[in-house]
């Protein structure tokens, strides 16, 4: 649909600009707040233009011992924790889903459909629903305050399994037969043929799952009590309530900015593969 009506073009641009402004303004304010000193942020009117304290705040946030008057982990450690959790969840989910989809599509084992439906049913049980029993299990296993406890309960994933199942089903049977004649065993077929053919789908899923993992809030809040294990997303909320005094907006906003950064980077870096993975059909 190509239309050439100047007013329509003008109107659509205005709508788009308003949309961008609505999304961008809070981010701008976050950025501005992160560039002023603590005092300035408590005075009205709030600044709308950046100040000169950016590097000072960055250093204080990343390496300082949290807000004044509290004893929290430095933000770099929180970012590291978040990164480990997000990567663990994303990579773990992809690995488990690839393998289970491989088993369901390519092997004829007893109760195959039974397992298929068992995986299917977990779709109805996200962490929030099973949070109490899952906590109990993790506690019993002694996994509180550990990376394993942060990631493993979030790894089993029906959606990703289904996605890979669909991907594998589009690969013609002759590909498998050809590989069998070439002498490739099942795992060789998996690594040499299936994985490369699912490359773009894996990338797309990685982006989605990394963000999902990075943004986890409730689960880390529940199972980490040690301040060295806090993740950055949960720490923002804690910072707001932490001190008796009024919130240190410059530090909090800097933390928020830092928390946004990795997901943005992942999206930007993997954009090409991401789009390909969601749209490409040719096998």
């Amino acid at each position: 649909m190509v239309e050439n009506r100047p007013w329509l073009a003008f109107f659509t641009h205005v709508v788009l600009l308003i949309g961008i402004a609505i999304i961008a303004l809070p981010i701008w304010i976050t950025f501005v707040a992160a560039t002023h000193d603590e005092i300035r942020m408590t005075q009205v009117p709030l600044p709308l233009l950046p100040g000169d304290q950016f590097w000072v705040n960055l250093k204080a946030t990343l390496f300082g011992r949290g807000l004044s008057g509290t004893e929290t982990a430095p933000v770099w450690l929180m970012m590291l924790n978040s990164l480990v959790m997000a990567l663990g969840i994303a990579l773990g989910k992809i690995a488990i889903s690839l393998l289970s989809a491989f088993a369901i599509v390519y092997f004829r084992f007893p109760f195959r459909m039974g397992f298929f439906w068992m995986i299917f049913i977990t779709l109805m049980l996200p962490v929030e629903v099973r949070i109490v029993p899952t906590f109990e299990v993790v506690a019993q296993l002694g996994l509180l305050n550990s990376y394993a406890g942060l990631t493993i309960p979030l790894i089993a994933s029906a959606t990703a399994t289904f996605m890979f199942r669909q991907v594998f089903l589009t690969i013609p049977d002759e590909m498998l037969e050809s590989a069998r004649i070439d002498g490739a065993g099942p795992m060789r077929f998996f690594f040499d043929i299936l994985l490369p053919l699912s490359r773009t789908n894996i990338a797309a899923l990685f982006v989605i799952l990394f963000i999902y993992g990075w943004n986890q809030y409730l689960w880390p809040l529940l199972i980490t009590t040690d301040s060295d294990m806090t993740t950055i997303v949960m720490s923002i909320k804690q910072m707001l309530e932490a001190a008796e005094q009024s919130p240190q907006w410059n530090i909090i906003m800097m933390t928020a900015l830092l928390a946004m950064l990795p997901p943005v980077l992942v999206v930007v870096l993997m954009q090409k593969l991401f789009v390909k993975g969601l749209t490409e059909t040719e096998k």
Binding site: P172, E174, M175, E177, S178, I181, G183, L197, R199, E282
Partner: peptide
Amino acid sequence: LEPARRDIAMVFQNYALYPH
């Protein structure tokens, strides 16, 4: 015997080349 051990080669209708 597995296909690979029969000392045969097969050409398929859709060629079944590895696309990558």
